[in-house]
């Protein structure tokens, strides 16, 4: 065997590695993303009678409730979109975010046994949990298309092809930051186990998911609310169906907020991941 310092496998194990994203290593382990995601999807729906239908049922029931109580009873406006379509479009993206950060947040702890026994880039775990949520989204998205047809919701098809994938990408960025941050924090402080569900619940009402931002009249409150990174994703997703243009500055603020969270989450995760095995 040829053993030299310049062979492909040369590496050093040292006390503290300089911060690096080490994208090369992540790419090397790309199959592990697939296997973890595949495991979680399989396990999630094993021994359930309804199986994948659960991925559709949750946003559908939520939509029905919101349509009845908020759309009809309270007569909340909906940016000229039919309220059920309006609510569902917000909710399916919101579900990606909420289940994404919940699962990612708990992922390091629930995979502690594996982390303690074997090395692989730790980022694989929270990212795979988010990919599971995207899998659910793709199923729910088909229902969304059916809803559009049923309610005769006009859609600008060209815009849809641009904005729907963009919205999904923005959602992933928005989910990744808090997801990784919570995953890392949860390893060290198990308090976050209790914070996560509460946070997700509270944010749902603090985001223009089920109501349009236009009903808020106070300018400062508006700016505060759009700090929620999901605002940008949801607006982008609704763009192909909206008659008037949204306030782009609000969308931009929300997107930048998501980007900042993304980098904070990534940096904190990378900084602490070496010690996960000692703490988990």
């Amino acid at each position: 065997m040829n053993v030299t310092d310049d062979n492909d496998y040369y590496f050093e194990i040292k006390p503290k590695l300089a911060f690096s994203l080490n994208l090369k290593e992540l790419i090397e382990y790309k199959e592990l993303f697939y296997f973890f995601t595949w495991r979680d999807v399989k396990v999630k729906y094993k021994q359930t009678a309804l199986g994948f239908i659960w991925a559709i049922l949750q946003p559908l029931i939520m939509m029905a409730i919101f349509t009845f109580f908020i759309g009809n009873a309270m007569d909340v406006p909906s940016d000229d979109i039919k309220y059920p379509v309006f609510a569902f479009s917000g909710l399916i993206l919101w579900t990606v975010f909420s289940s994404g950060i919940t699962n990612a947040g708990n992922s390091m702890v629930s995979n502690a046994q594996i982390i303690k026994k074997i090395y692989f880039p730790r980022l694989v775990i929270p990212i795979s949990s988010i990919l599971v949520s995207i899998f659910d989204f793709l199923i729910a998205f088909m229902v969304f298309i059916v809803l559009i047809v049923l309610y005769h919701q006009p859609v600008n098809v060209l815009k849809a092809f641009i904005f729907w994938p963009t919205a999904l990408l923005v959602t992933v960025i928005a989910t990744f930051g808090p997801g990784c941050l919570l995953a890392a924090l949860n390893v060290k402080y198990r308090d976050f186990r209790y914070v996560i569900p509460f946070l997700v619940q509270a944010l749902l009402f603090l985001t223009p998911v089920i109501y349009p931002i236009s009903i808020i009249s106070n300018v400062w409150l508006k700016y505060l609310l759009v700090l929620n990174p999901m605002y940008a994703a949801i607006i982008l997703f609704r763009m192909p169906m909206m008659k008037s243009a949204p306030d782009y500055s609000l969308v931009l603020i929300s997107f930048i907020s998501g980007l900042i969270l993304f980098f904070i989450g990534l940096a904190y995760f990378r900084k602490t991941e070496m010690y996960f095995a000692d703490l988990a």
Partner: peptide, 22 residues
């Protein structure tokens, strides 16, 4: 665990010239 990269050493270093599977 240190050789497997699961936990980092506090001091010192390890030089490996091959893939380690643990």
């Amino acid at each position: 665990k240190i050789l497997s990269k699961i936990t980092p050493p506090t001091e010192g270093k390890i030089i490996s010239r091959g893939r380690i599977a643990s």
